[in-house]
Design a protein around this nucleic acid. Structure first.
Length: 358
DNA sequence: AAAGCGTGGTT
DNA sequence: TAACCAAGCTT
């Protein structure tokens, strides 16, 4: 017996499942009570939910499953179509991996999903968390998905003071000790639901928590400051100029970004590189303008924050007359068709700035 | 293994 | 308001 106040893992699991039955939210990817979860739906939802809130995912999930109800349908789609549907949701490698994984499942595997956690883990875009989540939720395997919610509720209920990410291995081990032999899918969802709705990062609702009686952090009054986290490096600011080039007949010039890396495979308004040092407009035009034209700076500056840097993007605009020059690299898109492009949020801000001043 | 990878809501 | 944070994965 450890010195921990957690004396009975089975009791914690039981209390959590009772709480879940009474409080679970109605989410579109959840199986109807008594029915088996659709692995495809579980997979799509879990990938969308990576580092993304339920509120943000919901409309994307609805649209995605309406358009591609099965893994075979998704496999038959083009990557561009998938990226277009994913636009605005972020972390676009998820969409690329989702598409690759669909083709692998529908093709080589004949539409059959692996069920074991280790086999799911080998698929593109499926890491430790997602493999455990699919195995538990879709197949009732005894796996224990550990996401940010689970790290938090476990750190608090056991009173673990070790900062993340160093504490992750220990918190994962402790989470596994609580996983019951049955209803593993519900238990997995219940742990995350508890973290998302009660045991929140700030102002935890301990008065509504099924684990309050056993929670070490609550007893110590330390819940709100757990889990501890190591300090993060500061985010630098990068700068660049975007080139909004309109042609009276053809529309606006867009390009597709390289297939991998930041915003990989997405469409963009052509721009200079994004760097720490500021640019003069003349330097930007000399290095990166997509065409010889009368460029004029817009007043609006687009600001956008990525995971690891802030971006300040100024905009130069120009209009071409006559036939579209053949030596311009990119795609001319009529203005009304911009909404159908795989333009990420940053580029939608550029579009809004340019059209607002045009 | 540390860094790259989006976006929007909350505080 | 600037910082924090979200049902993480890849290299």
């Amino acid at each position: 017996m450890s010195a921990s106040a957690i004396t009975d893992p089975a009791r914690l699991a039981s209390r959590l499942l009772d709480w879940y039955d009474a409080n679970k939210r109605d989410l579109p990817w959840r199986a109807i009570a008594g029915e088996r979860a659709d692995p495809y739906a579980v997979w799509v939802s879990e990938v969308m939910l990576q580092q993304t809130t339920v509120a943000a995912v919901r409309p994307y999930y609805e649209a995605f499953l309406a358009r591609w109800p099965t893994v075979e349908a998704l496999a038959a789609a083009s990557l561009d179509e998938v990226l277009q549907t994913w636009r605005g949701l972020g972390y676009y490698a998820r969409a690329r991996n989702l598409h690759a994984c669909a083709r692998l499942i529908a093709g080589e595997r004949g539409g059959r999903w692996p069920q074991a956690e280790a086999d799911l883990r080998a698929l593109p875009g499926i890491g430790a968390y997602t493999a455990a989540a699919i195995a538990a939720i879709a197949f009732e395997h005894g796996s224990t998905p550990v996401d940010g919610n689970v790290l938090r509720i476990i750190a608090r209920v056991f009173g673990i003071e070790t900062p993340l990410p160093a504490a992750k291995a220990e918190l994962t081990r402790l989470a596994r000790t609580l996983t019951p032999p049955r209803r593993t899918g519900d238990f997995a969802q219940a742990t995350m639901e508890l973290g998302a709705t009660v045991c929140r990062p700030r102002r935890p609702g301990c008065d509504r928590c099924p684990w309050a009686d056993d929670c070490v952090a609550r007893a110590k009054g330390s819940a709100e400051r757990l889990p501890r986290r190591s300090a993060r490096p500061p985010r630098p600011t990068r700068q660049g100029w975007a080139f909004w080039l309109e042609h009276a007949d053809a529309g606006v010039l867009l390009r597709q970004r390289p297939a991998r890396g930041l915003l990989g495979g997405m469409m963009e308004v052509p721009s200079t590189p994004w760097r720490r040092a500021p640019w003069t407009a003349a330097e930007a035009i000399a290095i990166a303008a997509p065409a010889d034209a009368r460029w004029r700076p817009l007043n609006a500056v687009v600001e956008h924050t990525f995971t690891h840097f802030h971006l300040r993007l100024s905009v130069l605009a120009a209009r071409l007359e006559g036939p579209p020059p053949p030596d311009v690299a990119g795609t001319w898109v009529p203005l009304p068709d911009l909404e159908d492009q795989a333009l990420p949020s940053l580029m939608m801000k550029v579009v809004a700035a340019a059209r607002g001043e045009a």
